[in-house]
């Protein structure tokens, strides 16, 4: 087990706090006059995504969290678990449903995602920033409308629903920004 002292705290460092892996977002050294020094730290809990603020006495240590972000290809969902593979090593990982809560509506087989491993178990999955998905259902648009104003909902092959311009039809492939959930363009 490795420990890090407050003086080594920096943004992005992964540590254990209250039993959960967290990433340090901000660490501020605070020292009143000639008194006791503190570090005021902002951390994101990697399991829940919640941001926590916590003060430590300078010199205190935290256990480092064995957390790594690994690029993996999404393989398939077996109805319960979500399966990923490291392309170079063909090593496979199965992710529990709670680790793909936000990502699953964008996951398309063979896309490359970032899987956060905690003690070698998938903790969170980050989809690619842009995905190309086929529209499975959308209301027929008004012909001749190319302005993109207004828009309508469209259901994609993964189940995600995004707003698309009126001229987009069922069966077309579109590019979506997964960070915002916004339609970007039509893919020819």
């Amino acid at each position: 087990m490795a420990f890090v002292s407050t003086s080594e705290f920096k943004n992005g460092l992964k540590v254990m706090l209250d039993g959960d892996p967290c990433t340090i977002i901000e660490s501020e050294f605070v020292k009143p006059g000639k008194g006791q020094a503190f570090n005021r730290v902002k951390l994101r809990n990697l399991k829940t995504g919640r941001v926590i603020e916590r003060t430590f006495k300078s010199g205190d240590t935290l256990e480092t969290a064995d957390v790594a972000d690994v690029e993996m290809q999404y393989l398939y969902n077996d109805g319960e678990l979500w399966h990923f593979m490291v392309p170079e090593s063909f090593e496979q990982y199965a992710a529990e449903p709670n680790s793909v809560t936000d990502a699953k509506k964008w996951l398309k087989e063979q896309d490359i995602c970032i899987v956060t491993l905690f003690n070698n178990v998938p903790l969170a999955v980050q989809p690619p920033n842009f995905v190309e998905l086929t529209i499975t259902e959308t209301d027929p648009g008004v012909r001749g409308d190319t302005s993109g104003g207004g828009g309508k909902p469209a259901t994609l092959e993964t189940g995600a629903v995004v707003r698309v311009p009126l001229f987009i039809q069922t069966g077309e492939v579109i590019k979506v920004d997964t960070r915002t959930g916004d339609y970007v363009s039509r893919v020819k």
């Binding site: 605070v30 020292k31 009143p32 006059g33 008194g35 006791q36 503190f38 603020e53 003060t55 430590f56």
Partner: peptide
């Protein structure tokens, strides 16, 4: 919202003053 202070400062008055003053 600083419950961790109790563990940091314990019964040490100077540390309590430093903690509350700085925060």
């Amino acid at each position: 919202g600083l419950p961790e202070a109790a563990e940091i400062c314990g019964s040490d008055r100077p540390t309590w003053l430093d903690f509350l003053f700085s925060h």
